[in-house]
């Protein structure tokens, strides 16, 4: 039963991901990415990582993808931006390169079967939210408090940086927009 579910979810995930990267309309691509993330969340649940699944839904779908949708709408209007078609040769080259990469990785992993891959019987106990919370804030030997704090600083820096970058640069005047010249 689990195997069938996995195959179904995996094929759905691959399909949605393919759609996300190849649909000409960006808006459609972003929406199929949302679908792919939902499927991924389902896979996390199958792996007994409920918290990660929730985070996936809330952070990725609720935060990042929404953010991306806004940008798409802001810059391209309904996502129909592809005035220039992507040539078939480019698609073919991209497909070739990624296939080569895929088989390279598979070959690398398959050619040296490690004990990790062969020993397939161990299953971890389900990870609860408590565990994750304690580990994140634990100052002990195996705690993740330092990366956690660094991540929070990183977020802050990224926030400020994003504002600085996206702010209109007063030293540059733009030839488009509403025609008003920016003054410092």
């Amino acid at each position: 039963m689990g195997d069938y579910l996995f195959y179904a979810l995996a094929s759905a995930l691959v399909t949605f991901s393919l759609l996300a990267v190849s649909l000409p309309n960006l808006l459609h691509g972003a929406i199929s990415l949302i679908a792919a993330f939902f499927v991924t969340a389902a896979l996390y649940i199958m792996l007994q990582l409920e918290f990660v699944a929730l985070a996936q839904i809330m952070l990725y779908i609720g935060g990042i993808i929404i953010f991306m949708l806004i940008i798409i709408l802001l810059t391209t209007g309904l996502g129909v931006e592809n005035r220039h078609k992507i040539s078939n040769s480019r698609r073919l080259a991209g497909a070739g390169v990624s296939t080569v990469l895929l088989f390279g990785l598979l070959y690398a992993i398959g050619s040296k079967p490690s004990t990790v891959l062969v020993k397939d019987k161990y299953r971890a106990a389900p990870v609860t939210m408590d565990d994750i919370g304690l580990r994140l804030l634990s100052t002990g030997k195996e705690g993740f408090v330092v990366p956690f704090e660094i991540i929070s600083i990183l977020l802050l820096v990224a926030l400020v940086g994003a504002v600085v970058i996206a702010r209109r640069d007063s030293s540059v005047t733009y030839s488009h927009g509403d025609g008003q010249k920016e003054s410092a």
Partner: peptide, 16 residues
């Protein structure tokens, strides 16, 4: 990126 990926693949094939 494409060249990098190809190089990575080549390394993978060569190394293993």
């Amino acid at each position: 990126l494409g060249v990098t990926v190809l190089g990575l693949a080549a390394l993978l094939f060569l190394a293993s």
